[in-house]
């Protein structure tokens, strides 16, 4: 995958964990701590994938994704990462059905859970 992965979480340690996992697999990673920064990044760069925290202090994670998809619907593929929701939460189900996100990852997660969330064809090994 050429385009980097965007990791959005207001908790720096969460960013550290996800960045470490992804980097260990050879991905390039950009981390941001707020919805506003995420919007800026998504508007100015192309990312291969987005790990989006559901609850950011300034914005709702799903809204950030919705906003980015409004500009470039096909370029933003995101998984929502959250300790607040559960996987069959109606809000999550609806967001997946509407195609806003392509998956959901509950905190805490295993490294393989995180990596499995990435689209297969994009894994470095399949290149």
């Amino acid at each position: 995958m050429n385009a980097p992965i965007l990791v959005v979480d207001d908790e720096p340690d969460m960013c550290w964990a996800m960045e470490s996992i992804l980097k260990s697999q050879g991905y390039e990673v950009v981390t941001v701590l707020s919805g506003e920064e995420a919007c800026y990044q998504l508007a100015n760069r192309t990312f291969g994938f987005v790990f989006m925290d559901a609850k950011l202090p300034d914005m709702d994670g799903l809204d950030v994704v919705r906003r980015a998809r409004a500009i470039a619907p096909d370029q933003v593929r995101a998984v929502l990462v959250s300790g607040y929701h559960y996987h069959d939460d109606p809000v999550i189900r609806q967001a997946i059905d509407e195609g806003v996100i392509c998956g959901f990852l509950a905190k805490p997660f295993t490294h393989s859970d995180l990596l499995k969330a990435l689209p297969k064809r994009d894994t470095p090994d399949s290149r």
Binding site: A17, S82, Y84
Partner: peptide, 21 residues
Amino acid sequence: AGGIAHEIRNPLAVCYSAAEF
């Protein structure tokens, strides 16, 4: 409860990852 769950699961997720490393 919702806010509490969110706040506890963050450090749990960090611990889990770090332990896996």
